[in-house]
Design a protein around this nucleic acid. Sequence first.
DNA 1: CATTGCAGAGAACGCTCGTTCTCTGACCTT
DNA 2: AAGGTCAGAGAACGAGCGTTCTCTGCAATG
Lengths: 188, 188
Amino acid sequence: MIDEETARERVVSTADRLFYAHGVQAVGMDAVRTEAGVSLKRIYALFPSKDDLVLAVLRHRTDLWDTGIADAVAGAATPCGKLLAIFDFLATWFREDSFRGCAFINVFGELGGGSETVAEAVREQKASFQRRVAELVREAGAPDHLAPQLALLAEGAQTTAAISGDPEAAGHARAAADTLIRCALADS
Amino acid sequence: MIDEETARERVVSTADRLFYAHGVQAVGMDAVRTEAGVSLKRIYALFPSKDDLVLAVLRHRTDLWDTGIADAVAGAATPCGKLLAIFDFLATWFREDSFRGCAFINVFGELGGGSETVAEAVREQKASFQRRVAELVREAGAPDHLAPQLALLAEGAQTTAAISGDPEAAGHARAAADTLIRCALADS
DNA sequence: CATTGCAGAGAACGCTCGTTCTCTGACCTT
DNA sequence: AAGGTCAGAGAACGAGCGTTCTCTGCAATG
């Protein structure tokens, strides 16, 4: 029998992959069981309901996103470079075969109207990203109003890339961000 | 007994409202029947399956969006004003009580992974909007690369306003658009 | 070695939903 | 006025899902 932590991780990462690819409601618990190789009894011992599993998946995605952004930002030297690095991170992500848009936006569209806990988790993830951008904007010495503008570009790039299938959305967002950053720095 | 066109319109607008508020899969055909006041037999005579109804709803939304944008743009005098009018239109929309994000993005997140026809309808609506923006950019005499940047801002504003619940996303997008337009005109 | 307990597989249950069918009553025709 | 046609209400059906239960087999303990 496998370790509890291993089982939990297998279930969450399997559910993440399936929910992301097909939508939450389109994936049954049986499919999670089969692909994760963990019995239903075990899954329900770890996560009392499907909603709990969804929340665990969102937490998992949040961690992945946070470390991805942190790594990308850490690779840049200047504050402006750190801001632009976010869009380079997006460009890489958009080119992955499994890319199907922002999981948080997707799940918000699917379940946000019915589950307040899911809506809250999505809201918190987006707010956290905005805080992160605001921090980098301040470090760059640019005016505060730049931060929500850059965040908007990042969000728009994710949905556009998902729907059109064109990863070049990241390039457009990066170019727009570059222009906005320059203007903001020139004004201040 | 009511007219066929009236029945069709009642069903589509009811389904639109319900699907938009709660998600497609969360709304049963019984709920559409009850709220529209049209019998199931009639509904299935007009739309052979729920998928067909979803597509009809998307067409309906496309029409609403197109006329909304057209009206907003028509109210502005200069080409630049027409571009900014798009964001004023968004600002008004975001303040509606029923606002819950872009219906196309929501339905894409929920069903795009499973239904190619739905994905295609969403893709086409977004592409049509991008063409519209590109047209206005050309009329304004700005370089072509501006268009996808402005479209990104509009998309990002829609998702951000939906998730955060803050209609001010439209204001941020408008300000960013204004900056980008000025820079693009100065460069050309 | 016999026994107890526990984990896994998957059958079972209750519910919901998309779709179809049936019955009833009203209207139209002659 | 009688008979036929058609629309509406909602029951019915079959499938799928989340969740629980049962049975089987294995492993640990005395």
